[in-house]
Design a protein around this nucleic acid. Structure first.
Lengths: 187, 187
DNA sequence: CCGGGACTGGTACATTTGTACCAGTCGATC
DNA sequence: GATCGACTGGTACAAATGTACCAGTCCCGG
């Protein structure tokens, strides 16, 4: 395991976020990483292999973020739940939005290339599972259904935030939306 | 206005949906459309021009779908609202998912290329506006906020449906999610 | 010390790409 | 019927791309 490999993967993520999966060419990645071209072909058998591993890295990290925010003890009422959700959304959207962009790229690509579907599934399960862990004790009527609704509110909201950024979105509009949803979902 | 131009645009949409914006090369589009290569360079000044116009066409159509489903008289109670939303989501997700995929591509690309942002904004306004028109009379507490929440539930749900299709999603899981959200949002 | 695998850095090459160019055709207008 | 503009179909070409190849270097086990 060389660190050169990691450097290349990190660079790939930046390129994907900045210019999309297809812009992640061997040369672009090598230039971004500051390594010679052959480093990208030595450590990764092909371009799609490179991209797939970069996406796996993103999912791994996002999954860790979800896990850490969903760690027990879970929130015990609606207000605590909202705070947790806002914090999670903020964490996912931070990091100069690179991971988030890559994640949405993954979902779109998974719809086309079957090889990426297991990865998309893994993310989905971790994400939904994390939210379900949060809603479990928060006095909601149907915790699993609530997790789905809340995950979509966050996912849709962050996507729009990616396309048309508005200052303070997560702490403002998104929190309001989550509150409105939870109020209804709560007992 | 030649019909050749329209044929090329339609072909572009199919290619974008099937393989992504970057796969929409002049040659791929020409082959898909069954026209010679020069038809794509004659009617469109550049590749990005071609893609942008194709995305505009998608948005135009989706906007029309939203408008038709949001046409007055708006739903007057929660149940009617749900039916309308499910019908809208089904309409957006139909058509072999080509327009929907292209739409998400647009949102991601808009985050990167400023030239696409006005188009993304237009879509967003039309979409949110349509939903607001639907929620206006449906006895909801805060109709505009409800429109945002519901739009994100639908947008997030359809994105996941694109990545990991499940049979009967719109009529099943999505309807449930909308009901759960509206129950809370309703007075 | 030294042999060999892991890795680096450089270059080469066939293919694909965007785009320009050109010689023709067709249909309407004078 | 001549003319002109819109359009077609074909080809050309420089640039970028994926990937293979090769000669070196580093480092660890013997």
């Amino acid at each position: 395991m060389s660190d050169r490999r990691d450097v290349v993967l990190e660079a790939t993520l930046r390129v994907v976020a900045r210019s999309g999966v297809d812009a992640a060419t061997h040369r672009a990645v090598a230039a971004e990483a500051g390594v010679p071209l052959a480093s990208t072909t030595y450590h990764f058998t092909s371009k799609s292999d490179l991209v797939r591993q970069a996406l796996e890295l993103v999912i791994e990290r996002s999954t860790a973020i979800v896990a850490s925010h969903a760690a027990p003890p879970g929130p015990e009422d609606a207000d605590e739940l909202i705070e947790r959700l806002v914090a999670l959304a903020a964490a996912l959207a931070s990091d100069e939005r690179a991971p988030l962009t890559a994640q949405y790229e993954l979902l779109l690509e998974a719809g086309r290339r079957a090889e990426l579907r297991p990865l998309a599934e893994r993310w989905n399960e971790a994400y939904l599972g994390g939210l379900a862990a949060m809603t479990a004790r928060a006095q909601l009527r149907r915790p699993e259904l609530a997790a789905e609704v809340l995950s979509n509110v966050i996912e849709g909201g962050l996507l729009n935030q990616l396309a048309l950024p508005q200052a303070g979105f997560v702490e403002g509009s998104l929190r309001e939306q989550l509150q409105a949803a939870v109020e209804g979902l709560g007992g």
